[in-house]
């Protein structure tokens, strides 16, 4: 499970860190040998297909009757991921979102991009601007400073804050426009959750009733092949720590935003989630996990709640039916 927020460049270590920190239980993906044997006895099988997307690894685990051909479902699942990437991945220089950032405007935008961007702007309004899809200039600033071994200076931060503002994104019929030069949009705060939605929908359309997907955030349908429920482990705040909790049974969606993903300082003070008002990372929390009926909601709310902090974050999440939030204080 992963942190969402602002991420521009692939962070190859991310998976490893997360495996320790928030590691989903190994049982989730493949199941211990004994359970698999049990599943076999029941005439059921599970198969996992991994891949790369959104600058990290993703995986789909499908359960079905033994002998069933899962290949079409795998193909559909990955096709759904590729479609979301083509619309909104910042790891792809040719994605619709990357073109919007480059040109400042985009005609005939990909509907998948419009859907995510509308949702992001709605949540920006609902969260009083704590969630803001236009914080991309902060990333550029911090990443460049980090490459020099520095933090950005105050003036540069102030200059960047001036280029952030969700109200400056105009979505009209047939076009998206960024009103000010130097702006940049990121949907990394919700795109992986949205991908989980799209993948599970594609799988369901192929008759898959039991599936577990990891697109960086998590989603699950039904049960494991052996009939046991899917389980999702919530890690402690730092790698190597014990699991803080296990969600069992796990169905629906879960997303985590944490200070462990791309960090700019060893003490995890500076990382990839930014307060749109200051251009720095919020200091109250180490991680926020949100469970929700959609991946989009889970992912975006976890980012928003991370910025808002425990009290105001909880207040935001309770306004959305079927959502729950878990905070891990800053360590």
């Amino acid at each position: 499970m992963s942190a969402s927020g602002i991420r521009l460049r692939p962070a190859p270590e991310r998976r490893r860190i997360l495996a320790g920190a928030f590691g989903a239980l190994a049982a989730v993906a493949s199941g211990p040998a004994a359970l698999r044997a049990l599943a076999g006895a029941q005439g059921r099988q599970a198969a996992t297909r991994a891949g790369l997307a959104f600058g990290t690894t993703v995986s789909l685990t499908l359960a079905g009757a033994r002998g069933a051909d899962l290949e079409p479902a795998f193909r559909a699942g990955f096709a759904a991921i590729r479609a979301v990437e083509a619309a909104a991945s910042l790891y792809r220089p040719d994605s619709a979102l990357a073109r919007l950032n480059r040109d400042g405007s985009l005609d005939d935008p990909d509907p998948l991009l419009v859907e995510q961007l509308r949702f992001a702007l709605d949540l920006a309004a609902a969260s009083g601007g704590a969630f803001d899809p236009t914080v991309q200039p902060f990333w550029t600033l911090w990443a460049e400073a980090a490459a020099r071994g520095e933090r950005p200076d105050e003036r540069a931060l102030i200059e960047a804050v001036a280029r952030v503002g969700w109200r400056e994104v105009e979505i009209s019929a047939g076009a998206i426009r960024l009103a000010r030069p130097g702006m940049g949009v990121t949907l990394n705060g919700l795109v992986q959750g949205y991908a989980a939605d799209r993948v599970l929908a594609a799988l369901a359309a192929h008759g898959i009733a039991d599936a577990f997907v990891d697109t960086g955030e998590f989603g699950a349908l039904g049960r494991h092949a052996d009939g046991t429920p899917w389980r999702l482990g919530i890690g402690g705040p730092r790698r190597g720590g014990d699991l803080a909790a296990v969600i069992e049974p796990f169905t629906g969606f879960a997303a985590t935003s944490g200070d462990d993903a791309t960090v700019f300082s060893v003490d995890h003070r500076d990382h990839h989630i930014f307060d749109p008002a200051t251009g720095t990372s919020p200091q109250a929390l180490s991680a926020v996990t949100v469970t929700a009926p959609s991946g989009l909601l889970a992912d975006a709310l976890s980012t928003a709640a991370f910025v808002l902090g425990p009290e105001r974050g909880a207040a935001l999440v309770v306004r959305y039916p079927g959502c729950a939030v878990r905070f891990t204080a800053k360590v």
Partner: peptide, 13 residues
């Protein structure tokens, strides 16, 4: 083709 290694439920290229 990415070649991955699985470790504690997650993957690494």
């Amino acid at each position: 083709w990415p070649i991955l290694k699985q470790e504690a439920g997650s993957y690494e290229v």
